[in-house]
Nucleic acid binder design. Structure first.
Lengths: 230, 230
DNA sequence: GAATTCGAAACTGAATACAGCTCTCAGGCC
DNA sequence: GGCCTGAGAGCTGTATTCAGTTTCGAATTC
């Protein structure tokens, strides 16, 4: 019955994606029976996966009332962006201090190789994937798996809003989403020069620029989530 | 059957405490049936609680092999301390920027009121509780609930080692554990003066001072955990 | 004596069953 | 009309059950 890849893991992955994409509307109550049918598993593994997601902040839980989607408010999103600043700036600082030269060079290389894709990509999903990938690699540089873990969690919860933000930028710029590759370059440059203050400042301003748009992005998110269709 | 206070919550709290105190030895496999009897609940709610703790990093999980206690290594503890630096320094920075004067004053007040207790306390457990309480209050000042959440999680996982560190300091100082109250005062002073750089620097050095002893503390932890009996 | 294989015991994985709580809505009351 | 009430349906909480996997030791072989 139990296979190599557990049912809970499969259910968990599916649910994490659904929660990240707000397939459940903010504050929506989650019906376990219905969901277990959709996912093709019984309530027992489903509830185990739901409990993990509660611990990760994707869902909330009320006794005898069950699981709910996390709320979506500007304040919540701002908090997530600020937490990202905390984690990524410290990761940058640590990378400046102790990342091996060759790993830094590899990251710079990665940026160079990705540039064509970055410049040609139009789909916000692609851009976001590349952006997240860069930030994840940078976090790897610092060699601290806790910071990586926290960042991964924050990114999952903020992804939906970042996607909206990218779409918004694309629409404003007239069909072309602006890659942040120059900002990324500046950060890597700072790290390569072991110039901690410069690298951290670049990272901070890079993230905070997006944070300022959180309120507007949440407004758009709501209109997308609750407009009847399309 | 289901009461006001759920069984899962009760089991979860008990397990969190056990995991924090390394009632399970590092890497030890956890027997669900035995544990469910000890805790007076069936395996279903137990597993739900265990899953939460996996998501929080207190335990690990392997398919078809069950739950294990998290490992305990110097590197892991250093990572936790570094993550604390990230979170608490940013919390300090935000507090400097936007905490209301009266809240800062309240924290300073709290420090004054606690001073006698701080000076007279000898039990490391008490000292640690007061120290954690101060840091939690400071994190509240920044008004970011994500940073508070992350800090709470990190503190839970690092507590055991911090306790050992305090005991070690007490033993060295000859029966009296040194309160860090002066360091705390300096941080609050920086915040009250809205001197961001000073406050953050004070916080950073306050935490990093402890981090440097992590390796030694882990060594002691191991000897305590594996010595036959006291 | 060491390595290997096989089988039983112990354990985990997941479905099911049912008890108890919550929510809804019809009906009665003010 | 608005508000309370209570029964019923639906949902959650948890124990139990059994299938499938891992583990461990004894018997066997080299």
């Amino acid at each position: 019955m139990a296979k190599r890849e557990s049912n809970v893991d499969r259910v968990y992955e599916a649910l994490r994606r659904m929660a990240a994409d707000f397939a459940f509307k903010p504050d929506q109550r989650i019906n376990e029976s219905a969901l277990s049918e959709v996912l093709g598993a019984s309530r027992t593994p489903l509830r185990e996966a739901l409990n993990r997601l509660v611990a990760e902040g994707f869902l909330t839980f009320q006794n005898n009332r069950g699981f709910f989607c996390r709320p979506l408010t500007p304040g919540y999103i701002m908090d997530l962006y600020e937490a990202r600043v905390a984690v990524e700036c410290e990761a940058t600082r640590l990378a400046c201090t102790r990342a091996p030269d060759e790993d830094i060079a590899a990251l710079a290389d990665y940026l160079n190789r990705m540039e064509p894709e970055y410049e040609s990509a139009t789909a916000p999903e692609e851009l976001l994937a590349m952006d997240e990938s860069f930030h994840a690699r940078l976090a790897q540089l610092c060699g601290n798996s806790e910071l990586q873990r926290i960042l991964n969690n924050l990114n999952g919860r903020i992804r939906y809003i970042r996607l909206i933000d990218l779409k918004r930028m694309r629409d404003r710029a007239g069909g072309k989403a602006p890659g942040d590759i120059s900002a990324h370059r500046q950060i890597v440059k700072g790290i390569a020069a072991r110039n901690t203050e410069a690298a951290v400042a670049a990272m901070r301003s890079h993230i905070e620029k997006r944070r300022e748009e959180a309120t507007e992005a949440v407004r758009i998110a709501f209109s997308q989530l609750y407009v009847p269709d399309e």
